[in-house]
Design a binder for these strands. Structure first.
Lengths: 152, 152
DNA sequence: TATTGTTATACTCTATAACTATA
DNA sequence: TATAGTTATAGAGTATAACAATA
């Protein structure tokens, strides 16, 4: 079966695809952890740094919702990043309960480091192991899967 | 860009794709955890049960290599599964150091439960949110990504 | 009352180190 | 010597519960 044959799926095919997606999530996560040995930041921390770099400053609750964890869990991650000098807090302009989290200069350097170490093997594999059509298939699928994850 | 336009990728596009794949791994993992609230087995345990169901009995070391964890970590997961009565050990026919791990009847029932709860939302989303062509793209991409993960 | 965030506590996952038993 | 597996210990990630401050 390739991307060019569009058959309506049987329930069994759907279940098998779902199972493979679940398995892939675990495999990717552990493969990424292997690529992060000796790194300065953990995977969860890297995810937050990367998000702040792409989307700009955000509050604890916003980051928690975006990363699908509880605010308390995000609070722990942010405390570690703040201790390491990678993010800083500034008071929210109008709501004194909130604090805006933003990257420090060192935090931005770490984002670059994450791109090199953690994501480097993926970029290399995409370049060396796939042809142009396959890469296009992967790129489109990643967008589709990201959309499915975001549904409630 | 769709799967039907096959352009050679620029380094920036490769980096962006790699970043999205890393982010997707984390999002999928946490979305799967949400779908597992109240489940009898954890995500790592479910992965092992599913693998035993698909591939048949295996040793601790084989399971550790397949799941990309250390044998000690797999040992802890297997001990929990054995305590719960979901797997059992039998002596290896020729090598007394090894033990073959296999599913119990209750373990097989749990595999079905995992399919319903953990993978059910994925199957539903694939069916309801994607058209036939998009599903084919996702199915092919999952196979390609699984191949990339397995490369050393 | 609702929201933002913190502190305290516990469980899971995984790792490293040190060990035993068997090949 | 090398391999399969166990035990002990620790760090990271996440959760729930209870709380304080602000809206």
């Amino acid at each position: 079966m390739t991307a060019h044959e569009h058959q309506p799926p049987s329930p069994d095919e759907l279940r098998e695809a779902a199972s493979k997606i679940r398995a892939l999530a675990g495999q990717l996560t552990r493969r990424l952890r292997e690529a992060s040995e000796g790194a300065d930041v953990t995977m969860s921390q890297a995810a937050v740094l990367s998000r702040l770099d792409r989307r700009g400053p955000a509050t604890t609750v916003e980051l928690a919702r975006a990363e699908r964890v509880r605010p308390q869990s995000m609070g722990a991650t942010l405390a570690a990043l703040e201790d390491a000098g990678l993010v800083e807090r500034s008071p929210h302009p109008t709501d004194r309960r909130q604090a805006l989290i933003s990257l420090t200069a060192e935090g931005r350097r770490q984002v670059e480091e994450v791109r090199r170490t953690r994501e480097g093997w993926i970029a290399k594999a995409l370049r060396e192991e796939l042809d142009d059509r396959e890469r296009a298939v992967v790129v489109e699928a990643v967008g589709l899967l990201a959309r499915l994850v975001e549904e409630e």
